[in-house]
Amino acid sequence: MMIHAYQEIYVNNAQTMLGDAFDYAINTCHISGDDFVKMFVVSSFSERIENGEPACVAGKSGIELVHEIVFETMQKELNIESEVNYSRSCEYWIGWAVAYYQWYSDRSFKEIFNVLSFEDLKRMYYTLHEADISKFVDIVDSKMKEYYVETNLKRIRTT
């Protein structure tokens, strides 16, 4: 039996929220993908999502998440109007897919982004955005196994 990061009922909400956050941060706020990943990983919100904190995985919009991450990590307020966006951009897919993988694998976002850069994920979009999410999971699992050696005690970085 696989142990996931939190209850499955929250996965769709977490995916939508993180997808919207990546899309809004990058396409509306013009924060680079690499910079947003760094801010997200060092913020308290990445750990709160990993732990399945209901206020984070079900109680926030992606836009709210970006505003709070920027304030927490940069100590500045974003004064950018939010735009309603019903399209599913590459950046949305990256947040959506990474949220699913984090839930599925119970790995930290830091571990995931140590193995996959924003650009790596962007390149994956074109071949995987219409595929079943299990294909993304298989590919990322393979990359994780190359990067981390699993022991009974802890994960060890190999490169």
Rank of each mutant, 00 (worst) to 15 (best):
A131Q: 13
I63E: 00
N85E: 09
F109I: 10
D23Q: 15
F113V: 05
E81W: 03
T73Y: 03
R123E: 14
K38C: 12
R88Y: 08
R48F: 08
H67M: 02
E8I: 14
D34N: 11
A97M: 07
Y24E: 00
F113W: 08
S87L: 13
S46K: 05
M74C: 11
E91L: 02
G62T: 00
A97T: 05
A55Y: 14
H30C: 15
M17P: 03
A58W: 06
M39G: 10
E77S: 15
I112E: 02
R107H: 15
A99H: 01
F45G: 01
K76P: 07
Y101L: 10
Y24H: 09
C90K: 04
A58P: 04
A21L: 01
L18C: 06
F45T: 02
L18P: 03
R48Q: 15
T28P: 01
H30P: 08
S117K: 01
S89H: 00
L116G: 04
V70F: 02
Y24L: 03
E68L: 06
A131K: 13
F136M: 03
S44F: 13
G62Q: 00
E64Q: 12
H129V: 14
S61M: 01
L18H: 01
H129W: 11
S105T: 08
Y125E: 12
A58G: 12
D120P: 15
E68Y: 06
Y92H: 08
A58M: 10
T16I: 14
A25H: 05
S108A: 15
V37N: 03
E81D: 13
F118M: 04
R107A: 11
L121K: 04
E72T: 02
R123L: 12
N85R: 14
D23V: 08
W93N: 05
Y126W: 14
P54S: 14
Y125A: 13
S82I: 02
I94P: 08
S108Q: 11
D34H: 03
R123K: 09
S32P: 14
I49R: 01
H4E: 13
Y126M: 11
Y86P: 05
Y6V: 02
Q75P: 07
V41W: 09
I112N: 05
N51P: 05
E50I: 09
N79F: 12
K122N: 11
S134Y: 04
Y86I: 13
G62M: 01
Q75C: 11
E68I: 02
D23M: 11
G95P: 08
M39I: 08
K76H: 07
